[in-house]
């Protein structure tokens, strides 16, 4: 089958690739653009590890055909840090020991970023709701929830300063 051109912005940089029709965004990100921070856990939209943002909305990149992002802006885990400085969410995951094997971490952090971008002062229940599409096998979720709450506080302080 003829490959088709896809042009989109990823983490602020333009990407142009020829892809197989029906190729999933997760595969294009990982295999063509070498953005391997995005993990593929189940390839069927049930684990949340492949979560990225398209035009600010959370989506599962393993279920999104790459052609669908033509002309759009994608943010992956590699785009969460700015100029090499960790985002407060990433810092909170590190200092709060909210990672173990790390497979869910990228999706969790992107989901947390989407939450905090939209709602800078979430309740614990809102944090739980925001990550309920992401499966973690190691941490028991508790450290992840606490890290997102502490990152939210950190971001509010940074904004008011």
């Amino acid at each position: 089958m003829a490959r088709v051109p896809v042009v989109f912005t990823v983490n602020g940089t333009e990407a142009a690739e020829f892809v197989e029709p029906g190729a999933m965004l997760s595969d294009v990100l990982r295999d063509k653009l070498d953005l391997t921070g995005t993990r593929v856990g189940c390839s069927q939209g049930t684990c949340g590890a492949c979560t990225v943002m398209i035009d600010g909305e959370l989506i599962l990149s393993c279920l999104t055909p790459a052609q669908r992002v033509n002309g759009k802006s994608v943010v992956t885990i590699e785009g969460v840090a700015t100029n090499g400085e960790l985002d407060p969410i990433q810092q909170a995951f590190a200092t709060g020991f909210a990672t173990q094997c790390g497979f869910c971490t990228s999706g969790m952090i992107v989901a947390a970023k989407a939450l905090l971008d939209a709602n800078p002062d979430p309740s614990r229940d809102e944090v739980v709701d925001a990550i309920s599409g992401n499966i973690c096998r190691c941490t028991g979720y508790e450290p992840i929830i606490n890290a997102i709450l502490s990152a939210a506080a950190e971001r509010r302080v940074a904004k008011s300063a």
């Binding site: 189940c42 739980v128 309920s132 973690c136 508790e142």
Partner: peptide, 17 residues
């Protein structure tokens, strides 16, 4: 056969630890 059917507690099912 998948994570929809293989049940595990989610972040909303946590007790007080």
């Amino acid at each position: 056969v998948d994570f929809n059917e293989y049940l595990m507690p989610g972040p909303g099912d946590l007790p007080e630890f």
